[in-house]
Each structure stands twice: as C-alpha cells, then as structure tokens.
Simulated scan of single mutants.
Amino acid sequence: MATRVVDAAGIEHAKAQRGARIVSLVPSLTELLFALKLDAQIVGRTGFCVHPHDKVRNVPKVGGTKAVKIDAVRALQPTHLLVNIDENERDTVDRLRAFVPHVVVTHPLAPHDNFALYALLGAIFDREDEARELSLQLRSQLDACASRAWPQQNVLYAIWREPWMTVARDTYIAAMLHLVNWQTLPDLQGGERGAARYPSFDLDAAWIRNADRVLLSSEPYRFTQRHAEALSRHARFQGKRIELIDGEMVSWYGSRAIDGIAYLRDYASR
C-alpha cells in the first residue's frame, strides 16, 4: 500500500512517481528541496528563490511569490507545486490547481514545525534519509538554544516602512525570536480582535516605550544603517538599542532554520 502523508491543508499525498517535476513558489522551500538532493526534479521557482545561489540560477523563474506567471508554470508541466499559506495567494493557487496534479500546501508557524515539513517532503519525494539528517541537525540547534537561560527582552521587529509593519506573536518570526526569550511587541495574536498577523504601527505608539530592542530586518524591506540612525533621532526611540538583523535567518524555515537558530543564538549573545 502506498505511503500517504497529509499537508497543511489536510490534503493527502501519495509518494511521487519517479520523474516528478516540481515547481516551488516559496524561497524557503526551494532551498529545502536542494538540501533534500532533489536538484534534478526542480523545474521552476520564483525570482525570490535565490538560495542556493549556484544552483537556482539554472532553474527557470515563474514570476514572484504573489505575481505568479500562470502560463510559465503551465509550460513547465509540473507534477507537483509547493506553496505556503502566508506567502502565496489562494486565488492564484486555485488557478494553478486546475492543471497541476499535486499541490502541496505548507504553513510552518514555529521552528519545531520544520520537523514535520522535512518529513512531509521527504516522504512525498522519497528522501526520508535526507529528511532525517536535517531533523537531527535541527534538533541539535534547538537543544543548544534551550540549554541556555536567556534573559527576557521585549523587541520590536520591523519588516516594512511606509507604512511601518511588524509581526504578531503567532508568526514564525516571533516563534524564532522566542527561542532566545525575546517577546515581540505589540502583544498581539494574528486575528485577535481583528488584528493582522503582520500589523502596521505608528512610530508614536505608546507601547514602543516598552521595547528593549528594535530590530530592523533585511527583508522583505531592506533596512540599512541609514534607517537605524534616522529612527534613533525620533523622540520615541531615543536611547533605545536599534540594530539591523538578517531577515532570511529569522524568517526562512526549511533547511535555513538550522543555520538560522545558530545565527540567532550568536546574535542574542552580543
């Protein structure tokens, strides 16, 4: 009997047949596919799928994570499409589902969810051994993080400006930061009292006074030292610790989470 696994949408997937053709619409997942040694089966990716640099350059682009070129995907004749609930628009995925036989939906919300993600793709694409090795590496990093008592700090993690935007506490980013006992501000859960998972905020917001650190991410908005210096002159932020942080290391799941946790441990130790 064929092995069947269930994705984040509750859809069961049988093991892929030999010669599966995979299009990934998620940067983290594209990198994970290469880590699972599926190079020969990756036939399409978005322009934001930039890792690993030396390998993705040979994979055709099909637009962005949201601005997907439907006809470009169709021309590649994929058997499998990898998507994410946060990063890809449902209407676009539904259009692609009309001609892609297998759409695999993902939605990791915490570093520990990567165990299930590795197992999911490993089972579908016959890479169980590679998935187990990634799980061992992830477990090692999580254990190293948990072995230390981290002082609690409140952090404002900025992902965008004009409008300024941050992350709710039920996002993957917030869960990563929680590994080093950093609590994101404001204290919101996505959907709570109508709150967004990536809420906008005003620089004069009263809760900013409670932030111990202000982290300016390198993605999706590329904050620079110039932005940090300008923010430090704002009345609400004077005297606060304002730093740049590698957004890929904090927000990318999949295989990147392994190096991301190590990066965060080192970053929080400064």
Rank of each mutant, 00 (worst) to 15 (best):
E192A: 15
H51E: 13
K240T: 02
L138E: 05
D212R: 04
M249P: 06
L185E: 07
L32P: 00
M176Q: 13
D259Y: 08
L76M: 04
R193N: 15
L29P: 05
R236A: 02
G239K: 01
S217D: 03
L142S: 03
V83E: 13
R132I: 03
T46V: 00
R90D: 15
R169C: 10
P220W: 11
V26D: 02
V104L: 11
F34S: 11
R213G: 05
I85Q: 14
I70Q: 04
A158D: 08
E192C: 09
Y118P: 02
R132C: 00
Q137R: 14
L136H: 05
G10I: 00
H80F: 07
T171P: 01
Q225Y: 02
L76S: 10
N154G: 09
V26R: 02
R97S: 15
H112A: 15
P163E: 10
L96R: 11
M1D: 01
H102L: 08
A211G: 12
L25R: 01
R74S: 03
L177R: 12
I208A: 14
V180P: 15
Y157M: 05
A196D: 14
C49E: 05
T184K: 02
Y118F: 15
G47D: 07
R139Y: 04
A2T: 00
D91E: 15
N181Y: 07
E128L: 14
L216M: 07
P60S: 02
N210R: 12
A144W: 03
R127T: 08
K15C: 04
H107C: 08
E31Y: 00
D126L: 07
R241T: 05
L177F: 14
V62E: 14
F223K: 03
M1L: 00
K37L: 10
A230K: 08
V6I: 02
N58P: 04
V93Y: 13
V5E: 01
S217V: 02
V155A: 10
P52L: 02
S255P: 03
Q137M: 12
P111H: 09
G44M: 02
V103Q: 10
S135N: 01
R95I: 04
A98H: 11
H102K: 13
E229W: 06
H53M: 06
A72L: 12
V68T: 03
R90H: 12
T30Q: 04
P186L: 12
H234A: 00
W207C: 02
L215I: 05
L142W: 00
A75R: 12
R90Q: 13
A205L: 11
Q238N: 01
W150C: 01
R18P: 01
C145K: 03
P163L: 07
A98E: 09
E87A: 07
W182F: 12
D170F: 06
F237H: 00
K69T: 13
Q77N: 09
A35S: 14
A168Y: 15
A228G: 00
T65Y: 04
T224K: 08
T166R: 08
L76R: 02
T224S: 03
A72N: 06
A8F: 08
R213T: 08
G44N: 02
A123P: 03
M165C: 09
L264I: 03
A257M: 11
V180I: 14
N154I: 05
G190W: 14
R270H: 07
E31S: 09
Q225L: 10
T92H: 10
F125I: 10
R90I: 14
W252F: 12
G191R: 12
T65E: 07
K15R: 06
G194W: 10
L121T: 05
R226Q: 04
R236V: 01
F115V: 11
A72E: 06
